[in-house]
């Protein structure tokens, strides 16, 4: 019974190959609101299942979660399509929620999940904006966003940084608390977490370089993000940073 619960939870807190279901669904979801909803809510049923059944979480499950996370982080290195990249990053981030469940702290796992998902929602909205403007959100296809659409590029950069667990955003503090907690109890897991974190940075920087860098189109291209939308994104990011600082309180 426990194993069945864990397997079912493994679909929502994606363990490879169960995670393939989420990526297939995300690829078929074309409406932005549906993609955003999927990204925001997908891990919550998994957390609810584990909370309801409270099965023991064996060590092999932790290893499976870490391997799944590492696999998606590694595979994200070569991705150029923003939608796919977001899905892979989501799988890599959410798989680590198993480690959060195994070491419960002051902050509820649901909040950790929300903190990990929120930057991905912003990212998928930005990806939709890029698709509307250029027909595809694909790194290396057009590039030069910083020259052509500076506001959109600026927001995109900060959102990708938030997603790959850079400081002051919730994923950073989730990763930080996990690494700090495992450093002495399970040094191998801490090393794996450090490696996964490094892979995210690499993948994120590659994606950004393909989208943001380059001479850009000097002619009249698509319109930039409106000031109102920019402020809305800035407010969302500020709220995320606030959430990150709240998570930081859980480190005490």
């Amino acid at each position: 019974m426990d194993a069945a619960f864990l397997l079912l939870a493994g679909v929502f807190l994606p363990l490879f190959p169960l995670s393939m279901l989420f990526n297939a669904l995300l690829r078929r979801a074309h409406r932005p609101w549906l993609r955003a909803l999927l990204l925001l809510t997908w891990p919550q049923p998994g957390l609810a299942l584990v909370a309801a059944a409270q099965p023991p979480l064996p060590d092999w499950l932790m290893a499976w979660a870490l391997l799944s996370s590492a696999l998606y982080a590694f595979r994200a290195l070569s991705l150029r399509e923003l939608g796919l990249w977001t899905g892979f990053l989501a799988c890599s981030l959410w798989a680590l929620l198993w480690l959060v469940l195994a070491r419960p702290g002051e902050v509820p796992p649901g909040l950790h999940a929300l903190g990990l998902s929120a930057p991905l929602v912003l990212l998928t909205l930005l990806g939709t904006g890029l698709e509307r403007r250029f027909g595809a959100a694909y790194a290396g296809l057009y590039g030069g966003l910083a020259q052509q659409l500076p506001r959109l590029a600026g927001v995109l950069v900060v959102v990708v940084l938030a997603g790959i667990a850079m400081p002051l955003f919730p994923p950073f503090f989730t990763l930080l608390s996990l690494t700090l907690a495992t450093a002495s109890a399970a040094p191998a897991a801490a090393l794996a977490l450090a490696g996964i974190w490094l892979l995210w940075s690499w993948a994120g920087a590659r994606l950004l370089q393909g989208l943001v860098v380059g001479p850009g189109d000097s002619g009249g291209g698509p319109a930039d993000l409106s000031p109102a939308a920019t402020w809305a994104y800035a407010a969302a990011l500020a709220a995320l940073a606030g959430g990150g600082l709240y998570l930081l309180g859980g480190l005490a």
Binding site: L176, L180, T182, A183, S184, A190, L191, A194, W197, L198
Partner: peptide
């Protein structure tokens, strides 16, 4: 990352 691990320890 080594600094994070050192801090954790």
């Amino acid at each position: 990352l080594p600094l994070v691990l050192a801090a954790g320890l």
